[in-house]
């Protein structure tokens, strides 16, 4: 019996999310009295892999062959299922991100393992396996029992603290998924903005809504985000209008994020918007309407015209930083 962790990589590298997952997997393994094995698919060097050992991973299965070059979710699910069989894994953990959402359901059917997705806490108990998950777009939490012998849990990003737990690590080559790529998917074009802080990775997010009035007014939002080392975001109408790129749209139908700090500037705080940001640790609202619902979600607020408040706030931050 063991806990299996699927560790995605980004051009051969791990990121904070990976170590959040490893910390989480170690926590679950401790509850079960067992260890964590990670399965890494694709090309990641051993030095990078060894970093997992700092968060309690004891063994890594390295699957790197021709079947792994292309992200075909069916093939990936097969590889992870093989790893789960080999390790006799009872619980399989992955991120609740693009890749995890694509793989987990396929793996579920393959292993007949129930899934709890968008989880942000350790299980309440492991036998029976009872865990809390996000439901109704953040308006409730559901205590869910997974009844199958094998279980899959997908963890929300930025929701679990890193916990260092140095472990000796063994790296094993894993000859994955005989048969190779399915041949059903042909990649025609890839567009990737490398080097840019992803909204989902950002710990600080500065977001603007329709109250910003015009795309020409985004200068101070961008400057503020840059000074804070954060990313920029927006409400849906702002991206629908083409004021900002679609990747910035947060909310029920956009990105769901959980930064440490979220600034909602000129955003009313509609339920559908809150659905994407309510897991933020601290929310700050700037809005000229003191009755705007965003103030019910916010911990700090300024009632005022964003076009006047924001530049002052940028100056105040600059002063605080130089002090």
């Amino acid at each position: 019996m063991s806990v299996l962790l699927y560790t995605e990589n980004w051009e051969g590298k791990f990121k904070k999310l990976t170590f959040e997952l490893a910390s989480y997997a170690s926590g679950v393994a401790e509850m079960l009295g067992t260890g964590v094995t990670a399965v890494s698919i694709g090309s990641v060097d051993d030095q990078e892999l060894k970093k997992l050992g700092e968060y309690g991973v004891g063994k890594i299965l390295k699957a790197d062959n021709e079947a792994t070059g292309q992200f075909d979710t069916g093939v990936y699910a097969k590889i992870i299922a093989d790893a789960a069989d080999k390790e006799n894994a009872e619980i399989i953990i992955m991120a609740n991100n693009n890749a995890g959402k694509a793989i987990a359901p396929r793996l579920s059917v393959r292993l007949k393992a129930g899934v709890a997705s968008a989880v942000s806490e350790l299980p309440v108990s492991v036998s029976p396996f009872f865990i809390k998950k996000r439901v109704f777009s953040g308006n409730a939490v559901a205590g869910t029992e997974i009844k199958t012998e094998k279980k899959i849990v997908t963890l929300s990003q930025n929701s679990f603290d890193l916990a260092e737990k140095p472990a000796d690590i063994i790296i094993e080559n894993f000859d994955a998924a005989a048969g190779g790529p399915s041949g059903n998917i042909e990649v025609r074009e890839v567009e990737r903005q490398s080097g840019k802080l992803l909204l989902t990775d950002a710990e600080i997010v500065v977001s603007g809504g329709r109250g910003m009035k015009s795309p020409d007014n985004w200068g101070p939002i961008e400057e503020f985000a840059k000074l804070l080392g954060g990313a920029t975001a927006c409400s849906r109408p702002v991206s629908d209008e083409g004021w900002r790129p679609h990747e910035e749209h947060t909310g029920q139908t956009g990105k769901i994020i959980a930064p440490n700090l979220y600034f909602a500037i000129g955003i009313s705080g509609a339920t559908q918007h809150l659905a994407g940001i309510s897991a933020s640790k601290v929310i700050v609202a700037i809005n000229n309407d003191k009755d705007a619902p965003i103030f019910d979600a916010a911990q700090y607020g300024i009632v005022g015209d964003a076009s006047k408040v924001l530049p002052k706030l940028v100056e105040a931050l600059k002063e605080a930083k130089s002090a």
């Binding site: 205590g143 911990q299 700090y300 009632v303 002052k312």
Partner: peptide, 23 residues
């Protein structure tokens, strides 16, 4: 089914908003 929801909880209430002078 493989899973069963046993109970629901509302999310934790947020602390009241602290207002800061816009000036």
């Amino acid at each position: 089914p493989l899973t069963e929801v046993k109970e629901f909880e509302p999310p934790k209430p947020r602390p009241a908003c602290k207002f800061v002078d816009p000036d």
